[in-house]
Design a protein around this nucleic acid. Structure first.
Lengths: 358, 358
DNA sequence: AGCAAAATTTGAATCGATCCAACGAAAATG
DNA sequence: CATTTTCGTTGGATCGATTCAAATTTTGCT
């Protein structure tokens, strides 16, 4: 391992090769950053010195301080890092964010952490020009941390009503209404709701009080949209089971066990995410319940997987690609203003919904 | 927009609040990095000043230079950034990389670029402690750039035989043999190979010369493995069509059109990636050709999607999770040594392979 | 050769923090 | 009361580069 040219471990600095080549560090710097302004003979000499000493090029750490811009945007979530690659919604969103970044040459830093303490540190020390915050669980804390950095940032799919944070989201109430309306129009009257979390670390049937004190406004809004439509057609919404899941397979299955243990199980299920809906599809199929004949389901999100399930899922599609693009734009062209954008959603009717039996 | 406290745009620095609070910058720094060593009264005063001046906490750009470590690893590819979220293989690999990073608290920076020039710049200026390089197309150039940074780096699934670069890969020859052996054991004798790229930007039937001069050793090795086994059972391998694809739907379909236009189409297809194999499954199904009765297929990679296709895909599974873990470990615990690890693969028999008709 | 203009090179200042040796003050000890 | 400890604070040095005004060398022209 011992190199012949360098005695110790200390990495080679620009100043070292400047000295070796007998030029000032200013010139040495120019050789790398604006080679055209230095005389060829000198340029070659410096490059040769760099080569000989094993110099890896100007260290971006040094450059960064002077330049000020990192040229990367941070994408933050309170979930584990693998969320970005595992979750279908996140994946589509990230794909569109990364396309927008590619187009402008910006890089992406993934910021996340298992525990809260680490998260704070990670956000505080992330080398980025701005943050896009995925507001899932722990969203409010995340938003607060990001805001403390005083960098441009935008919350995606925001669960906070705080008008002071920039956010890009969809009209949850309208979307949920649309989903419910689709099912009531088909004639359904017995419903169950598979909800996203209302608050952290809890699952199970939720009471109206719990809904009222929900941490996550997005979840509450979707529920509001659902129930609004259901009561419009005369359904007693206090009788509609609302089961809070953690947006994962385990809690969704637990929810389904409970819901289908009832004497009069629902003929229609409103799922607040496609992920929940897809797990439900699987569970029902294992139970030999036919979708859409025995049970209809409408999801929420519009992830690609929803189009390829068996049967294909009726869902409320968010303009995910558009949201990603807008988020990147908001960071890169940040003018210090906070703006909140509410995008429209779209009902996509596929084969998971049909009129109820009989 | 105009703030009452700050006249101009210039961001607040630690030195500013130190002055405002009437302490030295050293003390001000301590308030944030080691608050326990500064007297409470002073600490509060400094914090108050920070709050009042809208200070966002110590700028990591400054800290970084002193600290030296970024605490993030870069993952680089020559594909567009969205590759990380779109490609099934990359996704699984990234999920395992991110789990390993999470465990150690390291962040992830995604490095990539549309064009070659930008790529060089992005790699040179990436703020990372090391690189994991995805060697797909343009792998060798990428490896060279990464190596120039003189940072720890490891190539994944390396397509280079250069013993001087650290790499983690699988035994391509053995894996390919395994795939071919499975099909010959079932009795197949008419084969076609759907290959990954041998060189950049080319698709189509390949000649033996083109194989010999392949840029990508990984592709060549897989082919070697296939043909080795085929000739073992007496097949004239010069007659086996080898079609080079770009590992995408378009070129794969073009390949299939060509291959199935032959008088005696193959009864078995060896696909060098699950992605290719899955596209093939779709194409065959659209052509009303039954898998595995009309045609058998064996993929390569072992992505999750392969287990859920119709029919489920027989494939050669790489230990993707293990590879990701090892790669992260190699970066974080880099000792300057270059090591090359060849991991074993495993044949997973599912429903896409069966004995040929008749 | 003589002089102005153009091309290069220099070296100090800067980016925003952290670290640490040295110092002063207050508290503890003999 | 003198002396040691302990505690908190200070300010200079440092991390590794870029930038720019000023100094210097070259080149161009007569």
């Amino acid at each position: 391992m011992a190199s012949l040219t360098a005695g110790n471990r200390r990495p080679v600095r620009l100043a070292d090769i400047a000295k070796a080549a007998g030029v000032s560090h200013g010139t040495a710097s120019n050789v790398f950053s604006r080679p055209e302004i230095v005389r060829e003979e000198v340029r070659e000499r410096v490059k040769a010195a760099a080569e000989a000493m094993g110099y890896g090029g100007p260290d971006p750490k040094g450059r960064l301080l002077r330049a000020g811009k990192v040229n990367a945007i941070g994408v933050a979530t309170a979930e584990p890092l693998s969320y970005f690659f595992d979750d279908p919604f996140a994946r589509v969103m990230m794909a569109s964010i990364s396309q927008a970044c590619d187009a402008t040459g910006a890089g992406i830093s993934l910021v996340s952490a298992a525990n809260n303490e680490q998260l704070a540190w990670n956000i505080q020390s992330a080398l980025v020009d701005g943050f896009i915050v995925f507001c899932i669980e722990g969203g409010s804390r995340l938003v607060e941390l990001a805001r403390e950095r005083k960098l441009p940032f935008v919350a995606l799919d925001l669960d906070s009503e705080d008008g002071a944070v920039a956010a890009i989201g969809v009209d949850n109430i309208a979307g949920a209404s649309l989903a419910a309306r689709h099912l009531t129009d088909l004639g359904h009257r017995r419903f169950a709701v598979l909800a996203l979390p209302f608050a952290d670390g809890r699952t199970g049937l939720v009471s109206p009080e719990q809904v009222r004190s929900a941490t996550y406004a997005g979840t509450r809004d979707r529920l509001t949209g659902y129930l609004q439509e259901l009561s419009r057609v005369g359904i007693d919404t206090s009788k509609v089971p609302v089961y809070e899941t953690a947006n994962d397979a385990a809690s969704t299955k637990a929810a389904l066990e409970t819901i289908f243990a009832a004497k009069e199980p629902p003929t229609a299920i409103l799922a607040m995410s496609d992920k929940i809906a897809l797990v439900t599809l699987e569970w029902l199929s294992a139970r030999k319940l036919n979708v859409p004949n025995d049970v209809s389901i409408v999801g929420f999100d519009g992830v690609p997987e929803a189009a390829m399930s068996e049967p294909p899922l009726t869902t409320i599609a968010q303009p995910i690609a558009e949201m990603g693009r807008l988020a990147v734009k908001a960071i890169l062209e940040s003018d210090g203003k906070v703006s909140r954008q509410l995008l429209p959603v779209e009902l996509i009717v596929r084969a998971s919904s049909a009129p109820p039996r009989g």
